[in-house]
């Protein structure tokens, strides 16, 4: 009875595919050169090839003769993942258009969605105090060129 370690199978496949892509892309687009005088494509092409082989080895090693008792459990939830990453995107899109304070408040609001219980007032309060804190640290303290509000 054979089984697969799903985690390693997917990891190997992803890494191997990425390696193959890098190798092919480098060979097609950049000059390979010779070993004595390497072109820009030599190093990435070789690395891509090595990674493709390593990916294959990881996939082969993922074949188990005995099914593992381990259950594959994601180390994080979908909700925190989305909330944290979207908070970064929101901050990125607001920092230049509206300024530090609105971007910070928006970031805190979105980030607060990561928790199972969303409390609007608490998130706003946190956002306001964080924007004050970051304004004091980064603008007043470290004199970084950030504007609190953009109109």
């Amino acid at each position: 009875m054979k089984s697969f370690d799903k985690q390693d199978m997917i990891a190997g496949a992803v890494l191997g595919a990425f390696g193959m892509f890098v190798a092919i892309y480098a060979v097609r687009n950049y000059e390979f050169g010779t070993t004595a005088s390497m072109g820009p494509g030599y190093f990435p092409a070789v690395l891509g090839g090595i990674l493709a082989i390593l990916g294959l080895i990881i996939m082969l090693l993922s074949i188990r003769h005995i099914p593992s008792a381990e259950v594959w459990q994601a180390p994080f939830g979908l909700r925190p993942l989305l909330a944290v990453l979207v908070a970064v995107l929101v901050f990125a899109s607001l920092i230049l258009k509206l300024g530090l304070v609105p971007a910070t408040i928006a970031l805190s609001l979105v980030a607060a969605l990561a928790e199972p219980k969303f409390r609007f007032q608490k998130a706003i309060l946190l956002g306001v105090s964080l924007s004050l804190l970051s304004w004091l640290i980064f603008k007043v303290g470290l004199k970084m060129p950030l504007s609190a509000f953009v109109f």
């Binding site: 944290v84 908070a87 970064v88 901050f91 990125a92 920092i95 530090l100 910070t104 970031l107 805190s108 980030a111 607060a112 990561a114 998130a123 946190l126 956002g127 964080l130 804190l133 970051s134 980064f138 970084m144 060129p145 950030l146």
Partner: peptide
């Protein structure tokens, strides 16, 4: 954690 995310963003941007 919102403070960590915020400082990460400001750090990266600046």
């Amino acid at each position: 954690f919102p403070a960590i995310i915020l400082f990460t963003c400001i750090g990266v941007y600046s």
